[in-house]
Design a protein around this nucleic acid. Structure first.
Lengths: 201, 201, 201, 201
DNA sequence: TATGAATGAGATTTCATTCAT
DNA sequence: GATGAATGAAATCTCATTCAT
């Protein structure tokens, strides 16, 4: 991605903006070309099909997201800090990269069956990242014994749903930190438990 | 929906099967007609466009889901039971109605911008249902004080993610009850808390 | 036409109303059926195709027109009277049978090439009728020597154009008799000649 | 029309040839494309719909006709000469531009109601042109007092009918000049009057 | 390399016609 | 005879893709 020419970058950026706002079949190559400020044929210098372009865009978004997330998480010293970093970074991302978030939260189904595996790759990475945090927490005793392989879905599902809520403006009046804290409390203490005091966090 | 003719039902059923397996633009009206065992033109006797058919299918799936969910939830005597019913019924649904679940978990983006509001209706209903459980639990003291408007997204997000996991076969080896229990534990006691004993459940 | 059942008549009448107002390809068999108050399939009990129905309608209109015209003309005692009757009756027709007039003045091209000859039949009849008047007038000396085969087109063309003008409302403020007289004057005396006195008419 | 690209011209030309020979609904876009030697999609680069193409063709024919007619007429020194020029040029046109004439003499009804006004424009222009000749003639005393608003329809109707006759081969054996002279005599001297001597013409 | 005019496969949709009732 | 639900051939129009410039 970093070796990409400036023009290729422009095309991907434009495509992300368009694909994130409209369903795949409503997006015309010409729309993307226009927004990128290049000719329609130029796109085909860099991508051999609309499908491939979509995949590239989805993967670019996915990689950007995962890179930022992984970086933030890895800065945490323990599972708890990592979990907090996960939620905070995740919520930051949707603000900085609304288009990418909209794309990643949107169509799950690939535009062509052949791309299914490629489009599931990002999901796998995220499950690994979150699963890793869970397992680390269990190992260190920060978290109780739990079934990481199931729990991980609850956590990643929450992430996606938070993006959707933000993008639909349903959390527009809320502070990001406050939202992250609320979610963190939920997953740490549960619905029934007392809110942990500041010292425990 | 119950006043629909048998043929309309067949068409919706066929459309759900096809739309749930392939992206909107990959689905041809002819595919649906063929699967429904009717002529292509017959679909247009009942739906004026592909868009409208898709919407009808999405709404049929959504209504079916919400009806089953609401029925199960309302049988619970308190918030805790309702939450358990929510997860159990949700996981049952994906087994009985894999197509509907695949459709509801799939495309978030409407095939045409005009349909956005209609397609968000099901989401609103679900948020109300889950939000209601949370608020009831807080009122009765079953749950601690919490921000229902934020928490609700974590819960609904988990639901969707569980479907995705099931549909991708990632939970194929797990018992549904066990999964529901794991999730329930997570949301009741949190990651840090001790697993509640049987008496507390 | 007189042996037609009442239902066939209703269908032809409805078809005339619709075909006279909209281009052939904009008219749906269902429109006609609805206006006739019969089922769509019923039309096919009487006519085997849309083409044939159109032809029947055109011919019905044509026959009605020619019959009325011929009757009026034949009442004239000489060519001059016949010519006057021609114009008067022609202008009456568009008032009494606006739909038929609109149809006859409208599409010249048949909806299918095979129908060309049939649709030219009415035209031939009209040319014969008008040509006959001319030849009679020449023979009796009422009219000067002239080329009937050419002149006849000028006269019939005027007829059609007058209908068009009436149907477009361009002669709405004029009395029919006055219009007929003006046209008659034109053809009798020409543009340059003096208006013939009443005794000459 | 003169700024049109060569390809657009080809398309209009091909469309005129096809539309002039077959009813609107029998003409397929592919027929036009094939005759123009372009791809089907290429037509849509220049015209957004079949309707619009038809309108463009009709207007192109109409403009060509009116331009040639107006030029010929304006060369006449007086009303009489103008009237003669009108008939001569009119008859020339059908020989040089049989397709355009066939189209203009054919369907009066627009393929879509919305196009009615646009398609009546040419008619209006012709009525103005002919009406102007009549009024000039009356003013200069070349013609007697007459109702131009009515008479004009007789003249334009004759024009159309002459085209029809020519296109149907009914005047195939006649010399154009002779036909024009016959018609001119009719309108100048009438049916009853003596044929004007050469000096009067 | 960059372009966009040209293309035509392929999609949706219409509607004349059929035929079981 | 009368009906209208069902049909599928066929039309318009779109748009991903190509390729001459």
């Amino acid at each position: 991605m970093y070796g990409w020419s400036e023009k290729k970058q422009r095309i991907v950026q434009a495509a992300m903006e368009v694909f994130s706002r409209h369903a795949y079949h409503l997006v015309k190559m010409e729309d993307i070309a226009e927004r990128a400020g290049v000719g329609k044929g130029t796109i085909y210098e860099y991508f051999c099909s609309k499908d491939e372009l979509f995949l590239a865009v989805a993967q670019a978004g996915s990689r950007l997201y995962l890179a930022e997330l992984a970086a933030a998480v890895s800065a945490g010293q323990n599972a708890l800090e990592k979990l907090r970093a996960l939620f905070c970074q995740h919520l930051s991302f949707v603000e900085k990269h609304a288009d990418a978030a909209r794309l990643l939260a949107g169509d799950r189904r690939p535009p062509h069956p052949d791309l299914l595996q490629a489009m599931l790759e990002g999901r796998r990475q995220l499950l690994l990242l979150v699963g890793g945090i869970l397992e680390e927490g269990v190992k260190t005793g920060e978290f109780r014994e739990l079934e990481a392989a199931v729990t991980v879905h609850a956590l990643t599902g929450a992430l996606t749903a938070l993006w959707a809520a933000v993008l639909l403006g349903e959390l527009a009046d809320r502070d990001r930190e406050q939202v992250a804290q609320t979610i963190l409390d939920l997953y740490l203490a549960g619905l029934a438990g007392a809110r942990p005091g500041p010292g425990e966090q």
